[in-house]
Design a protein around this nucleic acid. Structure first.
Ligand SMILES: [Mn+2]
Ligand SMILES: [Mn+2]
Ligand SMILES: [Zn+2]
Ligand SMILES: [Zn+2]
Lengths: 138, 138
DNA sequence: GGACAAGATGCGAAAGATTTTCAGTTTTCC
DNA sequence: GGAAAACTGAAAATCTTTCGCATCTTGTCC
């Protein structure tokens, strides 16, 4: 359960951490902002401050439990770390997210970095568009 | 000159707009933040407020004169709109930027969006790493 | 089970980036 | 030149995220 993951991450097992991790796990809609998590906690009558949510998410990130993403919405969103890198397709209308991994793109990126003698550290690829459901509506 | 571009963009020709556009044009180091532009104005003894810089950059963006980028630094950076799409390679140490365009990647992105029935609108690809100069130093 | 130090928490204040407000100024057009 | 419309700087307001700190908890050791 959550307790084990938190312990293994080298963090003390506390109520806020267990709650937040479990919210991220249950959330079928992954990629939640700190505010989203906070609201979910409120709706569950949990007495956890927003600052704690940010603090815990940042600690989880440091521990490799979650990944922080920057979809240009002004706020960071978090998702459980699946262990495998992937990129995102994001609906600009409803926010739906589809994850993908394209070996060809990954390879080309490495080649491009090499061509410019850059030592690649990371990359962020986000494709924005309208999901199937949002295309019909205006 | 600048006046024409501003006029054609449907904006009134005012001193702040002309100044800011010319700074972006002269700036060999493209990709300036609003703050960068503001500092440059200060160094030229121009009496232009930071709010105006933000306002003008946003208007220029709306008019298609400049592009706003989000390199995960917390603040937006702007560059003149060259008219041609391109992606970026950014040095995480010194901030150097290299622009590139890879047809293969562009094509694959379109295919991926199509596979998921997304109507693609835009995308952002940024590769982070260490530039040649920054690799030696620790 | 209780004592303790290390580590966490909640809250309000503070920060950093960007936007809004507003009263005074400038540009455009006739 | 003059009026309407658009623009501007400065300050205040937002928004998101982080800090400071007094107050709790947890993990560990008798
Ligand atoms: Mn994801
Ligand atoms: Mn560029
Ligand atoms: Zn959608
Ligand atoms: Zn560098």
């Amino acid at each position: 359960m959550e307790n084990e993951q938190i312990k293994q991450a080298g963090l003390k097992v506390t109520a806020p951490r267990v709650k937040i991790l479990s919210i991220l796990e249950r959330s079928g809609k992954r990629h939640m902002s700190a505010e989203d998590v906070y609201k979910e906690l409120l709706s569950q009558d949990e007495e956890i401050g927003l600052a704690t949510v940010y603090r815990v998410l940042t600690q989880f990130e440091g521990a490799g439990l979650v990944c922080r993403r920057h979809f240009e919405s002004g706020q960071s969103v978090f998702e459980l770390n699946s262990g495998e890198h992937h990129d995102h397709l994001v609906c600009i209308k409803c926010g739906a997210v589809v994850e993908f991994l394209d070996p060809t793109i990954e390879t080309r990126q490495k080649r491009i970095a090499a061509e410019h003698h850059f030592k690649i550290e990371d990359h962020s690829l986000v494709v924005y568009g309208l999901c199937p459901e949002c295309q019909g509506k205006r």
